[in-house]
Design a protein around this nucleic acid. Structure first.
Lengths: 122, 122
DNA sequence: TGCAATGTTCAATATTTTTTGAACAAATTG
DNA sequence: CAATTTGTTCAAAAAATATTGAACATTGCA
């Protein structure tokens, strides 16, 4: 599935772009899930998010998150593992991600995030 | 100019809506300016933002900010004063606004906010 | 090798947002 | 009262985003 995609460097991450990513409910749910505020892992595969939306729509949102610098994609065989670029984000925008994640957690009820359904691992 | 417009209550303020407001460069500039990170006042009139965009476009953005719960509009005669609803935002999303404002301040160079041109007061 | 699984990419839609300008409204001032 | 100032509202146009499904690519497996 092609080569490992392009990620912006830490310095290239832009505030408005990051906020835009987080303002979309689907992407916020993805980021929240990757942040592991549930009991979830730190690294998840695309397929784990199938409850969130259709495959191709997810690919679109993952691309946006990746290009914005929010997540890093690691390719292993035929699956892609995503993880939050927490260190980079914290360095670039101190306190921002924490505030967003905590607020999202407090509002979990009203935000109604889909439940991440772990795909059986190999 | 009609009656004082509707503002959501503190509890009605939604995280994705707030993030969406902040992700737009014009609105982020407005919020940043109202936050007074320059030497600016806490309450500003629409006209003070004329450098940011056209009048009707500003009215659009102010409405978005107001309906999202980011600003409060106070009508005095023919002018409208806007102020950040900092207390409500801090209560609802602790640390969020601070993180955004601070990050914006650090990135001031690259964000290139327009300079708020104070309109002569009465 | 051929089939299944995982995701991407592309093109077409659909939807939402932003921007503009003209017309309007309310208050203030001469 | 007429003119000016401040800013809104409306409708139209422009632009950006999101969503879908079909086709494709890569890897893993029987």
């Amino acid at each position: 599935m092609s080569r490992t995609p392009l990620h912006p460097t830490r310095e290239q991450i832009e505030l408005p772009t990051v906020l835009d990513c987080l303002s979309d409910p689907t992407r916020l749910a993805i980021v929240f899930t990757l942040a592991g505020n549930d009991q979830a892992a730190r690294e998840l595969r695309c397929g784990d998010f199938n409850a969130f939306s259709g495959k191709s729509n997810l690919a679109y949102h993952f691309a946006k998150l990746r290009e914005a610098g929010l997540i890093e994609t690691r390719i292993v065989g035929t699956t892609r593992y995503q993880r939050l670029r927490r260190q980079d984000l914290d360095a670039r925008f101190p306190g921002l991600l924490d505030a967003v994640i905590k607020s999202a957690a407090r509002d979990a009820e009203r935000l109604q995030f889909p439940r991440c359904e772990l795909v059986a691992a190999d």
